[in-house]
Design a protein around this nucleic acid. Sequence first.
DNA 1: CCCAGGTGAGACAGTGATGTCTCATTCCCG
DNA 2: CGGGAATGAGACATCACTGTCTCACCTGGG
Lengths: 186, 186
Amino acid sequence: MAVDREQVLRGAAALLTHKSTATMDEVAKAAGISRATLHRHFAGRDALVRALEALGIAECESALDTARLDEGPARDAVRRLVREIEPAAGLLAFLYTENQLFEGEEQHQGWTRIDERVSGLFRRGQLSGEFRIDLTPAWLSEALFGLLASGAWMVQCGRGAPKDFQHMIVELLLGGALRPPAPQDG
Amino acid sequence: MAVDREQVLRGAAALLTHKSTATMDEVAKAAGISRATLHRHFAGRDALVRALEALGIAECESALDTARLDEGPARDAVRRLVREIEPAAGLLAFLYTENQLFEGEEQHQGWTRIDERVSGLFRRGQLSGEFRIDLTPAWLSEALFGLLASGAWMVQCGRGAPKDFQHMIVELLLGGALRPPAPQDG
DNA sequence: CCCAGGTGAGACAGTGATGTCTCATTCCCG
DNA sequence: CGGGAATGAGACATCACTGTCTCACCTGGG
């Protein structure tokens, strides 16, 4: 009975997301298989992390596709994007920190593609006059992923409710903490 | 000549900030001392990380004091806080991820204190009507640290200029990405 | 029934980091 | 100048994780 590679990756992601130093043994246990079988499917820890990276990229790009970033107001596209990407937020949070390990090597091309698409969305919003122009698209993109990670950790630690996830992130990213000034006539 | 413990911690922080898996040997080299001396001052890697945590907490609380969170408009207090905390952002970014390792144990009391003070600032802003009330103080606090970490990494990777650090973080946190509606009379 | 493929359990050596130790050297202070 | 403290260099055992291997099992298909 062939192990479901996808399911193993899910289990590994779930564990590594909240314990990034888990050993291959722990990963195997979390995935419900033996360490030997884990090694049969992934040459080593590095290969496993790479596979998780590929999975994260795939889920990201899938979310980007589903969110239809080119349609409608940019702010609505951001809302759709956060909603679609939420299920992958935990995995992204793990990869977000793990990427620090890849310092020596070049970044995976997938991340560049994703970053370009997200930055492009923010740039579109700036050109349409929706978004302010003193914050660079690169920073807005980085901030989006940072907030996603923060939100994922917060939910994982039980300090926040999953149902608030999208609202917290989108509202802070788009509107900020300041209360919008009431329409005034004086 | 007694090693300057503070200086060693600075060196360790600088290295671990952008390579969280650095070995004791690398840390020692980065701090300009031998591994033996490093072990004489910090019983082990764990003790070193704990000391870095204490340093980070101390710098945070120092920044909180200097920023005088209780004075003036809350938005200005946030601006002062980010400005004061910027030098420690790299260290905080490291601790922000490293904290995942302390999952089993209780969180350091210092973080709780810091979180309460920052949350208190946001709560004050909500009560004064400056900040919107649909984002919890806990989330705003979490988001602040998340954005600090994102900003620190971005600067470290050369994808952003240090001079933009404060502006990027404060403006996004307070104002969000949306362009504020122009004062309109119709 | 029998066999082949996939799996679990465990043994095994290799590796890298750790923590401790010793010894020579250096530097400050008296 | 002399002594003591601190440091650097390196040896050493230990430990945890890794990667590979073997063997038994068990499960489904011919």
